[in-house]
Simulated scan of single mutants.
Amino acid sequence: MSSPALDVALAYYKAWSNKNLDEALSYFADDFVSRTPEGRMDAAAYRPFLGGFLEILKKADLVAAFGDENTALMYYDAETLPVPYSPVGEWFRVENGKIVESRIVFDNFTLQGAGAIAKVS
């Protein structure tokens, strides 16, 4: 089922999962803000955050996506160079066809576990 917010969120996902950083960021509103594991970020700060993630990304597999008029929620599995499996959730608020707010959650247990394993390997 399609919705305005979901369509924008899926277009954003498609862009970054294909490692097209500029296209991905084109879906952000000028006043975009995100809450990430690194803290609160505006679009300028989000560019290197997402760019760094894309440098280590091997692939992302969308598991589920839902949306309504103004919000969307996605769940996907990310495979990165340091972590072979990392579940990720993202919530989006969309206004006038642009993402104005996002909240991203990485599975910290998976990430910390990979770091611990790497230290003893």
Results as ranks from 00 to 15, higher is better:
residue 64 A to Y: 04
residue 64 A to W: 04
residue 64 A to C: 06
residue 64 A to I: 04
residue 64 A to E: 10
residue 65 A to T: 06
residue 65 A to D: 05
residue 65 A to V: 04
residue 67 G to E: 03
residue 68 D to G: 15
residue 68 D to W: 07
residue 69 E to H: 10
residue 69 E to Q: 14
residue 69 E to V: 07
residue 70 N to G: 10
residue 70 N to Q: 14
residue 71 T to A: 10
residue 72 A to P: 06
residue 72 A to V: 08
residue 72 A to H: 06
residue 73 L to C: 11
residue 73 L to P: 01
residue 74 M to I: 15
residue 74 M to N: 11
residue 74 M to R: 10
residue 75 Y to V: 10
residue 75 Y to A: 07
residue 76 Y to N: 05
residue 76 Y to I: 01
residue 77 D to H: 14
residue 78 A to K: 00
residue 78 A to W: 00
residue 78 A to I: 02
residue 78 A to G: 07
residue 79 E to R: 11
residue 79 E to W: 01
residue 79 E to F: 02
residue 79 E to Y: 00
residue 80 T to H: 06
residue 80 T to C: 08
residue 80 T to Q: 03
residue 81 L to C: 07
residue 81 L to M: 13
residue 81 L to F: 09
residue 81 L to W: 06
residue 82 P to E: 01
residue 83 V to L: 11
residue 83 V to D: 06
residue 84 P to F: 11
residue 84 P to G: 06
residue 84 P to C: 11
residue 84 P to E: 10
residue 84 P to Y: 09
residue 85 Y to K: 15
residue 85 Y to P: 02
residue 86 S to P: 03
residue 86 S to D: 10
residue 87 P to M: 04
residue 87 P to L: 05
residue 87 P to F: 00
residue 88 V to D: 00
residue 88 V to S: 00
residue 90 E to I: 13
residue 90 E to M: 12
residue 90 E to P: 07
residue 91 W to H: 12
residue 91 W to Q: 09
residue 91 W to G: 11
residue 92 F to I: 00
residue 92 F to S: 00
residue 92 F to Y: 13
residue 93 R to A: 10
residue 94 V to C: 03
residue 94 V to E: 01
residue 94 V to R: 02
residue 95 E to L: 13
residue 95 E to S: 14
residue 97 G to Y: 06
residue 97 G to W: 03
residue 97 G to E: 04
